[in-house]
Nucleic acid binder design. Structure first.
Length: 269
DNA sequence: TCCATCCGTCTTAGTTCAAT
DNA sequence: ATTGAACTAAGACGGATGGA
């Protein structure tokens, strides 16, 4: 559990969120893309990220991009859901989650909580008080406009089978396995595996794996000196040919043009 | 009756390879 | 490194099966 502030210049980034987190934008614009979902978050708004990979585009306004990040570990979320189970009983069970994201505007109560966190950070109070602030923040969001969506996302974190699936996929998404191999290694029939996958991620296994691989490849293109063939192979593509096709379909340009800086990718599909 | 799982069929996406 | 075409595998979906 920790919070931190970020400031940066205009840039694109493939961002891996190791645990769920809330980002509050103070200045500038943040565009977040995952799967079929793109969200624009402006100053005065926040966004919740589940664990996973996201394509981020930071746009400073008046030369500045500033945001605060609050990270939550699964144990904290699990305890919060247990502690407030009575309060949360009225929430319906959401079967299909479309994305691991949702954005929200900062109402007066959330602003006050953030302000309280800031004050606590500047002074030496016990951590337990800050944890209460984190709880307060999540409970306020749970009772906001998209509370049911957030509840579904948080419940998912503490669901053993979906958590097992998430860990399994994070470990193996770069493997050159057929879907039947994934199912077999996971220990379920192909149909059960696909249905569990759809329930957890809201998209098909193949679509999710493709998106993760293309983001991994994009990150390697921007941050390494590997050849395009090596980037393709390292990212689980069977050939450079197919990698180029997929990259073009996903980003509207080819890997070599992005590598040489001739073109930049845009996040929206 | 409900739920988890499996099966069959049609559609869509991924892979390979040759040409440039 | 990229593109296009042919081939193959995976996905979507509805219905069937079997156990609790």
């Amino acid at each position: 559990m920790r919070s931190r502030k970020i400031c940066c210049e205009k840039q694109d980034e493939v961002f891996h969120s190791g645990q769920s987190q809330i980002v509050v934008i103070h200045n500038g614009l943040l565009r977040v893309k995952t799967g079929d979902c793109t969200l624009n978050v402006v100053a005065g708004c926040g966004i919740y990220f589940s664990q996973g990979d996201y394509l981020l585009e930071y746009t400073p306004i008046d030369g500045q991009y500033r945001a605060s990040v609050i990270e939550f570990d699964n144990e904290f979320v699990s305890k919060l859901l247990q502690k407030h189970s009575e309060l949360l009983m009225s929430f319906p069970k959401v079967a299909n989650i479309q994305s691991g994201l949702f954005s929200f505007t900062l109402n007066i109560l959330i602003k006050q909580t953030l302000s309280g966190m800031k004050t606590l950070e500047e002074q030496s109070y016990p951590d337990a008080i800050m944890r209460l602030k984190y709880e307060e923040m999540l409970i306020l969001l749970l009772h906001g406009e998209q509370g049911e969506h957030l509840y579904a996302l948080l419940s998912q974190l503490t669901n053993k089978s979906s958590e097992r699936l998430r860990r399994f996929m994070e470990r193996h998404y770069l493997k050159e396995w057929k879907l039947t191999d994934y199912a077999q290694e996971f220990g379920a029939s192909l149909t059960t595996f696909k249905e569990l996958f759809n329930e957890y991620y809201g998209i098909s296994p193949r679509a999710w794996i493709s998106e993760r691989r293309i983001l991994h490849a994009h990150k390697l293109l921007l941050t390494s000196k590997m050849s395009i063939v090596d980037v393709a192979m390292e990212s689980g593509f069977s050939s450079q040919s197919y990698f180029t096709q997929s990259y073009r379909r996903r980003f509207g340009t080819t890997p070599s043009k992005v590598r040489t800086g001739d073109e930049q990718v845009t996040i929206g599909k």
